[in-house]
Structures are given as structure tokens and as C-alpha cells.
Design a protein around this nucleic acid. Structure first.
Lengths: 125, 125
DNA sequence: TCCACGTACAACCATGTGGTTGTACGTTAC
DNA sequence: GTAACGTACAACCACATGGTTGTACGTGGA
């Protein structure tokens, strides 16, 4: 198991990151806090749902290490943590590279097939 | 709502892509089919779960447009679709750029703050 | 001091998710 | 034709998820 060939992150960690990103509200929260840190309550005011619901979304993002909270007075300030985001992006990039590598190999095989005369042509028996 | 400032993909589409990626088994399936297309049954043999369960995972990946199926004889051949993957990667990259842009702006503000004498210092009234 | 605000957390509910088993349908090999 | 294989799909189950409301706790300002 475990996405062989892509060493980096632990499975559960990746699960948490992508799960956190798989919700429009949470992506929007992330977007907002990247543009500037905000308190949980100021975030909550932006969405048509209860404060508790937004609190849960923030908790999901925090478990994924995409954000962190920091007390300031009576408010809890949310700010973005770019690390997890970067690692997720790197993972996707690696999938893409893998794809390109594979595509190139296929292309090569096809090319060899199309010119059966001159090349190494011999297959193992 | 809607991750303002990041135009591209429809929310539901992004939801589906990240949700599909938020599972170790599904990422592993994706990894395998990127390395070479396989039938659903040959994929199923790789995991300690029923054929039906693997079928469902494949369906989730297909709904996210990360893979597609193609009948070949009695088998259903799964192959990777790099498009959705690329768009997801681009979205993450844009979050990162946004972050860098924001970080740079903050840095700038701090710098201006630290040298209050010489600079443009004047704020709009 | 007291009140209002921001937060935390538990309980609850409907729905979705990941898994199972069972059954039915096509296609290929014999 | 029949058997075997690969697939599709429905029904079911346990549990997670995303939402609600209600209550309790800290903190800061009047």
C-alpha cells in the first residue's frame, strides 16, 4: 500500500490535508486567512452557518496543519501555515511528473514499434 | 463564497477531486494506473477488500475525472486522466503564490515601519 | 463588579462514506 | 450451450461528517 514511490508524507497526514481541502467553506476560510489573519468569530460572520459550525471547519483545517490558532486577548487568531499546503502541492506535482515519465516511456515504445527495421528490435524470446 | 480570486474550477468539481485524493487506497490506485493502465479486477486483487469496494473507489476517482474506464473484451481498463490532477495542482500553487504575495506585502510594511524617516511615509488622509 | 463578547465543548440529528454480501448481466473459452 | 470470469448494482451496516442548539468558561470594558 502507501502510494509506493512517493516517499514523503505519512498517509494519515495526506488524508487529513486533502480532506480539509475537499470542502468549499474550508477552502474559502483558508483563502481568507492567507490574505490576512482573522479571529474565528470574524470568520464565522462571513458564512451562513452557526459559529460552532465554522469552529469545526477551523478545527479540521488545524488538524491538517493548514492553519494554526493563537490567542490574542479574548479572540483566537487564525493564521495560515504554508507548510502542509506546499507538501500537498509537491505530492500532486510528483504524480504529474510520474505521469509525464510514463507518457514519455510509452511514446518511446511506440516510436520503436513504428520503425521496426533499423532499431534494436529484438525481443526476449 | 467560492474562494474569491481563484477563478478556474467549479466548487463541486474541486470538492470531488480533493475528496477523491483524501483516501490512501484511492491515491494508491491512481499511482498504479498512472504507471500503467489496469483492469478493475487486477486492481482489486491488490487490496485486502472486496471487489465491490475497489469498484466504488474507482467510481469516486472517475467522478472526480482523475481516471477513466474503457471496455476491452470483458475487462474494464482504467487509465489516468492527468487533466484534473493538473488543475488541482495549479489551484494549490495559486494558494501558495497568494501566500507569498501576502508575505511579501507584510514584509514591505514591516520594512517601511522600521525606517520611518526617509520613505514615502505619508498615508492617504 | 457585572455584562457582553469570543470561545469551547457536549449532545443530538440527518446524511454521506467505506465497507460488506448477494444477485444479475455480458463476454470469452471450452 | 455451458462454465468461468469480469463487471454492475442494490441492499445493508457501522461510523464519520456537517450541521444544529444549548451550556459553561475567560477576558476585557463600562
Amino acid at each position: 500500500m502507501v502510494v509506493r514511490g512517493l516517499p514523503s508524507l505519512a498517509d494519515a497526514e495526506v488524508d487529513r490535508i486533502f480532506h480539509a481541502l475537499a470542502d468549499t467553506t474550508r477552502r474559502d476560510i483558508l483563502d481568507r486567512v492567507i490574505r490576512g489573519e482573522q479571529s474565528v468569530s470574524s470568520l464565522a460572520r462571513e458564512y451562513p452557518m452557526s459559529f460552532a459550525a465554522v469552529q469545526k471547519h477551523v478545527a479540521v483545517l488545524q488538524r491538517a496543519a493548514l492553519i494554526s490558532k493563537q490567542r490574542r486577548g479574548k479572540e483566537q487568531i487564525v493564521h495560515a501555515e504554508v507548510g502542509a499546503l506546499r507538501r500537498a502541492a509537491e505530492l500532486l506535482d510528483r504524480y504529474e511528473q510520474l505521469w509525464r515519465h510514463h507518457a514519455a516511456a510509452i511514446e518511446q515504445l511506440l516510436a520503436e514499434d513504428r520503425s521496426p527495421a533499423g532499431k534494436k528490435e529484438g525481443k526476449a524470446p
